[in-house]
């Protein structure tokens, strides 16, 4: 059983919803970013998503675009991201998911990526721009030690949901709205209705809902129908507003705690 599965099993037994926290690895730099992950892991985040920055993030809004640019500028790349996972593994046992666009992985090499991610202690991968139609070239080379998390969108028809889920592991990431990350206007009723369709088409895989969830109130609403709530841009907004502040990691941790406490 993978660490991700174990986490959901455990949460299910206590009736909790998972808080999936995303930050861009290396924003604003390696040391601060690592400290931020330490604070997040220690204050309620159940699954950590580390974004490996890409120069042209076409599914991301301005907040994550800027965080990616800062991280790249500060020297973050696949190799240093692997090192960050390795160092995070020293202080946390929660699942770590590597989140990226395909090009940085392609440049690093699919097999090397798998080997290094497993060795560093990562548990899963999510590649935003790699739909099932194109993902064989990456996953054919893989074993079972890394879950491959796939995306479902509100535009995905039910039969396609089933096809996507049949090739996913770990959990399904349901995009809450037709838009990019950090968008406003979360409609939790609409998202709940898509989640219901997805639930009957996903072989029992946990469903985590993300995009546009920025406050404890949002997280509370989504936790009523999702197995996990993904928060990303809101963390990055906080990091951006506190650039240079000594207590930024602590504040991110406190925000994670508030989110977690708001959830069912």
């Amino acid at each position: 059983m993978s660490r991700i599965e174990e986490t959901f099993d455990k949460l299910r037994s206590t009736g909790e919803t998972a808080l999936v926290g995303f930050i861009t690895a290396g924003d604003p730099d390696f040391a601060v970013s690592l400290e931020i992950t330490r604070q997040m892991c220690g204050s309620g985040v159940d699954i950590l998503e580390l974004g490996i920055p890409f120069s042209d993030p076409t599914a991301d809004g301005p907040v994550i675009q800027r965080s990616s640019a800062r991280a790249i500028e500060a020297g973050m790349n696949m190799k240093t991201a692997m090192e960050m996972v390795r160092q995070a593994r020293e202080f946390t046992a929660i699942p770590i998911v590597l989140f990226s666009y395909y090009n940085p992985i392609l440049a690093y090499g699919a097999e090397t990526f798998y080997r290094d991610a497993v060795a560093a202690g990562a548990d899963g991968t999510l590649v935003v721009d790699l739909p099932p139609e194109e993902s064989d070239e990456l996953t054919d080379l893989w074993g079972k030690e890394l879950d491959f998390i796939r995306l479902v969108a509100p535009t995905t028809p039910p039969e396609r949901m089933a096809r996507i889920a049949s090739r996913a592991s770990g959990f399904i990431y349901l995009v809450s709205m037709t838009g990019i990350t950090g968008s406003s206007g979360l409609d939790s009723e609409a998202a709940a209705s898509v989640a219901k369709d997805l639930k009957s088409n996903c072989n029992g895989l946990p469903v985590c809902v993300g995009f546009g969830i920025s406050t404890p109130q949002d997280a509370a609403k989504v936790s009523e129908f999702a197995d996990g709530v993904v928060v990303g841009s809101a963390f990055e907004r906080l990091i951006e507003s506190g650039l240079g502040d000594k207590d930024i990691a602590e504040r991110v941790g406190q925000f994670a705690g508030r989110l977690k406490r708001s959830m069912k």
Partner: peptide
Amino acid sequence: SKGHFGPYGGRYVAETLMPA
């Protein structure tokens, strides 16, 4: 049929766009 020219082409996009 998947939009490949030899090893090139394809559809490397976010799921939201795939149905479109």
